[in-house]
Amino acid sequence: MISLSSYLFISFTLFIAGIAVMIARKNIIAMMLGIELILNSAALNFAAYTRFINNNLEGHLMSLFIIVIAAAEAAVGLAIVIRFFQIKETIHIDDAAQLQS
């Protein structure tokens, strides 16, 4: 039961859920939840491959770096969201269109 296919399926489900969240939501924080899901599905894939294919821990390191990047991304992203809210008083993604006239 614990096989590569099941892990890939779970990771696939997470990825799809993340994509759906990112496209369907108009709330920046909710979209960041989707990003977390996608990053986690990638990390899970790395760990599963390294366990079931070559078993040499490189995938664990990749997953660790992904977790690090996710943490950094969350910190900076949420800081930007809070700053954006202070300036524009909104967290609607359509309102973040300064470059578009």
Binding site: I19, V21, I23, A24, R25, T90, I91, H92, I93, D95
Partner: peptide
């Protein structure tokens, strides 16, 4: 700007596209 501050978690349109 006339845009809601706390947007809903998504509408039918966005869910269909997603």
């Amino acid at each position: 700007f006339g845009i809601e501050k706390i947007p809903a978690m998504g509408s039918t349109k966005t869910y269909v596209i997603a």
